[in-house]
Write a protein that binds this DNA or RNA. Structure first.
Lengths: 219, 219
DNA sequence: GCATTACCATAACAATCGTCATGAAAACCT
DNA sequence: AGGTTTTCATGACGATTGTTATGGTAATGC
C-alpha cells in the first residue's frame, strides 16, 4: 500500500484549528460542516475523509484545545518555583491575546454543550480534576504548614484548609476570571488582567505576610 | 375585544419553566419546539401562540432563570448582615438541590451559547456586572479600611484591593464553584458544598483574624 | 344569542444539516 | 510505468427543524 502523502494527524490538527476559529467566532451551535469546509477553503469531502462524523471532529477539536491549554500551563510552571511559578501559570492562562481569547471562548462553548450529555459531563469533570491537581501542585509549597492542623484538627475529606481544597479554589477562581475576561467585548489589557488576577490569587493563597519581596523577579 | 382567559404572562412563565427543565436535561443545542411541547403535554401550537419565535422563547427563558436566581440571592441578603449575609447568599446560590442544580446547568448552557454572538456576549456582560455589584455590596462592610490605602497608595481604576475588585473576585469564585458542583454527575452534599464554599470565600475576604466566632449563628 | 377573540391542535412548507456514494486527480510503491 | 491508494470535490438523499397557514373550540363582550 502507498504511504499517506502528508501527516494524517497534522491534517486533522489543521482542521481542528480551523474549527476552533469558527467556533470562537460563530459559536458551537451554528457550526456547520459546510461552513467549516469553506473556512478551510475546501468542501465537506475533506472533513468526511479525516473524521468519521461531525461528533468525532468536534470531540477531537475539544481534546486539542484543552490539551494545548493544559500543556501551556505545565510548560509555564517549569521555569519558576514558589509563588512566581503560580504567578507564571496564571499569567500564561489569562486571555491576554487573540489566541488565548479564542481558546477560552471555545472552552466555554464546549462547557455549555456538555450540560445535555452525562457522558460529556463526566469528561468535563475529568478535565477539571486535572486542573485541580495542577493547581494543587502549584499551591502546595505555598501553604504554611503541611499537616499542622491550624484551625481544622481533623484532615477533612476534601473540604477545609488543605492544599487540595486551596488548589481547587485557585483553579476555579482563575478559570472564572479567564472566562469573564475572554467574554468581554472590548478586551481588557494584559497588564490589567495580570495585575487583577495576581492580586486576587495572592489574597486566596496564604503566606502573604512577609511577602515584602514586592513585585518580584518575574519581570 | 374579549379579555384573555388566563394570565398571559403566567402562561409564558410555565412554558419557560418547562424549557429550563428540558434544557437542563437534554441541553440547549438539542432543544426542539416539538420536544418542548411534548414536555408540556401539548403541541407546538401553544408555543407559537405565546412566543413569536424560538429565539424569543429562549431569550425569555434565559431572563426568567437569571432573574429568579438573582432575586433569590438578594432575598437571602436581606435577612442578615456582615459576614453572615455573605455566607447566606453563598449558601443560597450553591446547587444544593435539584432546582438550583438545573438553574446553574441552564446558565452554563446559555453562557456557552453566548460565545457566538456579540449581542449575547454583551447581555452576558451586563448580567455579570449585576453579580459584581451585588457581591461588592456584600463585601464592602467586610473590607478592613474603606480608603486607607494599605498597600496601594493610588486608587487604581479597578484593579487592586478595593471592594469592587474583591466583590468581583468573590462573585467569580462563587460562580465557578457553583458551576463545578452543578456539573458533577453525583451531586456533592449540601453540607460539603457550603463548608467548602465558606472556607474559600472567607480566605478570599479579609478580616478573617479575630473571627473566632466559630461557626456562627447561621443555623 | 351572536359575533369576536383567545387558545391551541394539525399539517404542510421551505430550508438546512449530516451522511454517504460516486468519481476524478494526484501521490506513492514496486 | 502501471496499479494502488490517498485525497478530496460533487451531488444527492433522508431526516429534522422553525415557521406558517388553516381550522376548530371555548370563552368573553355586547
Amino acid at each position: 500500500m502507498s504511504r499517506p502523502r502528508g501527516d494524517h494527524a497534522e491534517r486533522r490538527a489543521v482542521i481542528a484549528r480551523a474549527a476552533t476559529a469558527v467556533i470562537a467566532e460563530r459559536g458551537l451551535e451554528t457550526l456547520t460542516l459546510r461552513d467549516l469546509a469553506a473556512a478551510l477553503g475546501a468542501t465537506t469531502g475533506v472533513l468526511t475523509h479525516y473524521f468519521p462524523s461531525k461528533d468525532a471532529l468536534v470531540a477531537h477539536t475539544k481534546e486539542l484545545v484543552f490539551d494545548a491549554c493544559y500543556a501551556r500551563a505545565r510548560l509555564a510552571a517549569e521555569g519558576a518555583s514558589g509563588r512566581d511559578r503560580l504567578h507564571a501559570v496564571v499569567a500564561e492562562l489569562l486571555p491576554v491575546d487573540d489566541e488565548r481569547r479564542t481558546t477560552w471562548r471555545v472552552l466555554v462553548a464546549f462547557q455549555g454543550s456538555a450540560v445535555g450529555s452525562a457522558e460529556l459531563r463526566r469528561a468535563h469533570g475529568r478535565r477539571m480534576r486535572r486542573w485541580f491537581a495542577l493547581f494543587e501542585d502549584l499551591v502546595t509549597p505555598l501553604v504554611p504548614a503541611a499537616g499542622g492542623g491550624r484551625v481544622s484538627p481533623r484532615p477533612a475529606p476534601g473540604d477545609d484548609g488543605n492544599a487540595a481544597a486551596l488548589g481547587m479554589a485557585v483553579a476555579l477562581l482563575v478559570e472564572g476570571m479567564a472566562i469573564h475576561f475572554a467574554m468581554l467585548e472590548r478586551p481588557l489589557s494584559a497588564a490589567r488582567q495580570v495585575a487583577f488576577a495576581r492580586a486576587q490569587v495572592d489574597r486566596l493563597v496564604p503566606g502573604a505576610r512577609r511577602s515584602s519581596r514586592r513585585r518580584t523577579v518575574a519581570r
